[in-house]
Design a protein around this nucleic acid. Structure first.
Lengths: 248, 248
DNA sequence: CGAGTTGTTGACAAGCCTCAAGTATCGTGG
DNA sequence: CCACGATACTTGAGGCTTGTCAACAACTCG
């Protein structure tokens, strides 16, 4: 991890051109620029936030993909969600309490840093941005809801297909996947297992089976869902509301 | 369901005295009163919000306990969370999209109704309240995170103990449980199963086993966790930050 | 080239699910 | 007040999904 020497000016925020994101107005970008404290870069595997830590920053993902997870004392680990460009890190969890989860970079990532303390004044001066932040928090909750349904009700195969479809969908919206529904990202089978609540071995078998059936192709480098409609149907995945999300 | 004839004046909001909630300032209560549109009462089993519906209201739980769930086409159902006094209904899920889940009353409940459309102006005029709403959304997310960990990593017995401890903890904070950690609430084993991602039969066996071991006593009328510390330890339940939550 | 990580596969065990039947509880109407 | 049906709880038996243990192959990196 290190600080980026030449951070973006918010007026030229790269997220402005992201297909799935609603661009900010010029005024808002100008304001955010004052609010912005700098940028950080992380390599794959770097820890961005650690469970138990008192976080006094908020981060917006500019580039990259992160995972958010919680660990149990005995070594078990549950990945709670993946985060894509435009997502806010640190919004999850009550502000005044230590972080309930850790966040780690899955690929090289670039994050925009905001001080948390200025948050109230941000809301005050730009209520619309405050609204957007609440919107993001609410949206994240809907996503978690989806994962909860997977964990609680779906079989191993359904879970893998659901996660694959969900990832590709989010990647398409953030320009990380191409038209072939192919996403280049190094996800370990162990990470998939920790996300889906399955054992490593069974995750492997399930992925192999889905590969043979042609539903999902997922190796350590990339993920591809050849037929999204078929996959979505198989796993009960509701292809995201096409509405674009706000970002900060 | 019917409208309450003599709703509370926000200045005398019953939640002000709730042990786990941070009271509102007089000014804020006065403002909320303008914002408030009325009160609704629901009986056990009544539907408050239906999946797919365009909700244009927000509700604060004044009294009662609710469940929030999502249904799959084939009849499977996943209960996502329980809601207690002070919780905001309708905050979950992006505002402009149809509800992703249904909400139902578990016991007789009384809800305070707010129009959603005035939400931006509320944030504008009382940024502090906007902050609190975001805080609540973030807190809910932490709770879902906890349930995700349960579903993904814990055994059937651990899940039941975790849920029991969690419910009692929340009930204590909202004055619904007594000092004996006893909570009078009619939860069906089928509902427990749908929350924990277990079959009805296995849920029953698990509860019986825990009863024999004296860890959790849970029948169709009430729930009791005789030794909270022991239970919390057994299930890896982190007894909630003692910090009191805000409410609207 | 060797060490460490990740992926793959087999054999077996265990946890959980399904089917099935029976019992308790509760509200309702005769 | 009892009979009845409906709902919820309980328990057994057997099967399937998933987990565990173990060994090996493939890959990555210094």
């Amino acid at each position: 991890m290190f600080e980026v020497a030449d951070p973006y000016d918010c007026l030229n925020c790269p997220l402005q051109d992201c297909p799935g994101l609603r661009p900010l107005e010029r005024r808002q970008r100008a304001y955010m620029n004052d609010f912005k404290k700098g940028e950080l870069r992380f390599e794959r595997g770097d820890t961005i936030l650690e469970e138990g830590e008192d976080a006094n920053h908020l981060y917006t993902v500019l580039e990259g993909v992160l995972i958010r997870f919680r660990s149990l004392e005995d070594g078990r680990r549950q990945i709670v969600n993946f985060m894509f460009p435009g997502d806010l890190v640190g919004l999850q969890g009550a502000f005044d309490e230590p972080a309930s989860h850790s966040v780690e970079a899955l690929i090289e990532a670039r994050l925009c840093v905001f001080p948390r303390s200025d948050f109230v004044s941000l809301i005050k001066e730009h209520p619309r941005l405050g609204y957007d932040i609440t919107w993001l928090a609410a949206k994240e909750e809907t996503e978690l809801e989806g994962h909860i349904v997977s964990l609680g009700q779906r079989s191993a195969k359904e879970r893998v297909v659901f996660l694959a479809a969900w990832l590709v969908d989010r990647a398409l919206a953030t320009g990380l996947a191409d038209e072939g529904n192919r996403l280049t990202i190094p996800v370990t089978q162990s990470q998939i297992a920790d996300m889906l609540g399955l054992s490593l071995v069974h995750t492997n078998r399930t992925i192999r089976a889905l590969d043979r059936e042609g539903l999902v192709e997922w190796n350590s480098r990339e993920l591809c869902v050849p037929n999204m409609d078929k996959a979505a149907d198989y796993a009960g995945f509701d292809r995201a509301g096409r509405s674009s999300r706000p970002f900060i």
